[in-house]
């Protein structure tokens, strides 16, 4: 459930390191800020409440930053939880583009032409 609250406000007793078991970095780099996440299963009882919230939020594809904002948690923490969920196959993630592709980005001129062409539509 999305808790409407100001991020960073200390109004919950559970500390952030207890959410991730003390990890502060995720071992997988499958997630960046705009990775789209879709849940693959329904939440099961006994799951961590953040995982339940993520699975509920991601019934529609949702970006990592949006999940972080909905949970009111830092993105790094959310990323760790998402990699846990990904490892157990409860979610799937989709990049708008991978880092590998970023090296051979299309020429800005082409993009500009596309932009102009689209505006002329």
């Amino acid at each position: 459930m999305t808790r409407p609250r100001r991020p960073g406000r200390d109004d919950d007793p559970d500390r952030l390191y207890t959410l991730t078991g003390g990890r502060s970095r995720s071992d997988s780099d499958a997630f960046d800020l705009v990775t789209l996440v879709v849940s693959e299963c329904e939440p099961t009882p006994g799951m961590q409440s953040e995982h339940v919230t993520i699975l509920r939020m991601c019934q529609l594809p949702t970006a990592v930053v949006e999940i972080a904002a909905g949970l009111g948690l830092p993105v790094s923490i959310v990323r760790i939880m998402l990699s846990d969920l990904l490892d157990t196959g409860r979610i799937s993630a989709r990049h708008p583009r991978t880092a590998r592709v970023a090296d051979r980005l299309p020429d800005p001129e082409i993009l500009e032409q596309v932009l102009v062409g689209l505006r002329n539509l």
């Binding site: 879709v38 019934q59 993630a93 989709r94 990049h95 592709v101 299309p106 596309v114």
Partner: peptide, 29 residues
């Protein structure tokens, strides 16, 4: 659906075909 296999057109622009999960999610929506 995993997103690590994007396809690219001739121009280098990434194509964004919908995955099955995405389509299913869309159907739900």
């Amino acid at each position: 659906t995993t997103g690590n296999l994007p396809r690219f057109g001739e121009s280098g622009l990434p194509k964004r075909p919908r995955g099955r999960t995405l389509a299913a999610a869309e159907a739900r929506a």
